[in-house]
Design a binder for these strands. Sequence first.
DNA 1: TATAATTCGGACAAAAAACTCTTTAAGGAG
DNA 2: CTCCTTAAAGAGTTTTTTGTCCGAATTATA
Lengths: 151, 151
Amino acid sequence: MVLSRTSQYAIQALIYIATQAPGEPVLNRDIAERLNVPAAYLAKILQNLCKHGLLDSFRGRLGGFCLREGMHKSTLMHVLQLTEGPDFTKNCILGLKECSDETACPMHFKWKPVKNKIISMLNFMTLDELAKAVLTGKYRLADLPASAIPS
Amino acid sequence: MVLSRTSQYAIQALIYIATQAPGEPVLNRDIAERLNVPAAYLAKILQNLCKHGLLDSFRGRLGGFCLREGMHKSTLMHVLQLTEGPDFTKNCILGLKECSDETACPMHFKWKPVKNKIISMLNFMTLDELAKAVLTGKYRLADLPASAIPS
DNA sequence: TATAATTCGGACAAAAAACTCTTTAAGGAG
DNA sequence: CTCCTTAAAGAGTTTTTTGTCCGAATTATA
């Protein structure tokens, strides 16, 4: 409804990394397994997050991915601007190239406040907080693996 | 951010049809031209809306598409359930197959109220009202055609 | 009845998104 | 130095979405 699969994977992975000891690289393979997500595809996504400075990567033994210094405080908005593109929140809901208070589509003024709620939420949620929530054990970062579902 | 191109075209077309004299079929070609949208693709979308009972279609001369009796009062939610599928609003923002108050992803409880705002908005807006708004001349249903942009 | 205008239906094509594979480079450990 | 492990890079594949094309069916009108 809102996020591409790529963004979903990115957020899940970042939260997972944020739950792990900072400075200790996490393997792509482990993340993919934990999230039940295709590893080769996830690798591309993590690479991209590295290029944009959100993650650090290390090759060879003891390699893997860490959140870059300070990036624990990153907001979901920050992440999504990397994965969905910089004008993620700037597009008209009906797809008009130009849609503003002055040149509005018929949904514009109803959509605007709702969109602002979404933006606030995304600006408010940080990787740190989401990781903390997960660490309480009350929330799920991925579907239960098939092995956990009794037949 | 929220709607597929198919849904955007569908909503635009339905609003346009709703602005026209009821009972007078509107040509696919005219809608496509007005909205600046690929006609053959739009035709498929309109066909689908017919199958689902939102539109009536007529072939041959004086043919075209009309809103079915009563469907002026249709909400955007109704339309989107046809174009995006019945559980349009039911999916987890992080893509988990199971995500509910009991088995929540870490975004669930922040996302839920925002999603409810979206749902309310979609349930509130009808084709009629949107058409009325367009008829005031204050809103745009499509981008200005290239011909209208001075160089 | 013939003709032109329209939607319908299905196959097809192109573009974008999601996903895979293989080779290379880098780093740690013996 | 050599081997193993890891990410990087790039090409390639599959699936989904978006968009095109064409022939058949339907209908009003001359």
